[in-house]
């Protein structure tokens, strides 16, 4: 479903992605972790072309990202992206946020989109917030709207870029619960997160990145219990200490 073959990327002189090779199957949930600055966010931002790559191949849903022959807006419509800072549209209500792209990108009739939007907002526990503006919602509620906004496009792939990092601790689980339910429905997911409970629960694979490269990958059980490299051991000891 998503395939990186020898992908490299530079920010100026900085080599941020080093020869990434990674293949993600349909319905697979992959958690990407690693120290800050290791290139995790850049990696998933490449998948929907928010970042461009220098060389190597990146094939998503059978199409080559960055190829002039690939219609990127069509491809992006198939890929949901959840941001660390939510990025809801502040001038739109929760329901309008959820239905905007389905109506204008998918060209779905407004009434159909709104029915789907209400159903999805109810599913993420916001049945009473259809007409609330983002500024009237808590961080956890905003992030759940953001997830519903992606789901309303009926995507084939969902990407999460540190979805709980900007949240107060008591709001993290309400967002993770929604993500778990999405994963359990068989969505193909790439999730940048340090929430190891989430990884253990739903991920088939954990990929550990450091300094722009993939250092190690394996099942959550293996990775957490028997990290193979010094760098992953050092990282795990830091995030699991508290």
């Amino acid at each position: 479903m998503i395939e990186f073959r020898g992908v490299n990327k530079w920010f100026g002189a900085l080599h941020v992605l080093k020869d990434i090779t990674l293949s993600i199957e349909p319905r697979e949930v992959v958690v990407i972790c690693g120290p800050s600055g290791s290139g995790k966010s850049t990696l998933i931002r490449c998948v929907n072309g928010l970042e461009t790559t220098k060389d190597g191949d990146l094939i998503v849903d059978g199409q080559r990202v960055g190829d002039p022959a690939t219609n990127m807006t069509d491809l992006r419509a198939e890929i949901g992206f959840v941001f660390q800072s939510f990025n809801l549209y502040p001038h739109k209500t929760a329901l309008e946020n959820v239905t905007l792209a389905p109506i204008h990108v998918r060209k779905i009739a407004r009434s159909t989109a709104e029915a789907a939007g209400r159903e999805l907002l109810a599913r993420v526990g916001l049945a009473d917030k259809f007409n609330a503006y983002p500024s009237e919602l808590s961080g956890g509620q905003q992030q759940r709207v953001a997830i519903a906004r992606c789901l309303c496009m009926r995507p084939k792939i969902m990407l999460f870029d540190e979805p709980t990092s900007a949240l107060d601790p008591e709001m993290i689980s309400e967002v993770l619960d929604v993500m778990v339910s999405v994963a359990e429905e068989g969505m193909t997911m790439m999730v940048v997160t340090h929430e190891m409970g989430f990884a253990r629960k739903v991920a088939q694979r954990v990929v550990f990145m450091d300094a722009g490269g993939i250092v190690e990958s394996g099942t959550p059980e293996d990775f957490f219990s028997h990290p193979k490299t010094d760098r992953s051991r050092a990282f795990l000891s830091k995030i699991l200490r508290h």
Binding site: R76, F83, Y89, H91, A101, R149
Partner: peptide
């Protein structure tokens, strides 16, 4: 905010759609 534009891009909007639906209504205010 850059994030507003990125949210539009990520949902598959074209440049004109992003301007019309996301950026200009906010810039207008």
């Amino acid at each position: 905010a850059r994030g507003q534009v990125e949210a539009g891009i990520a949902s598959g909007m074209t440049y004109m759609q992003r301007m019309r639906l996301v950026v200009l209504p906010q810039a207008f205010r």
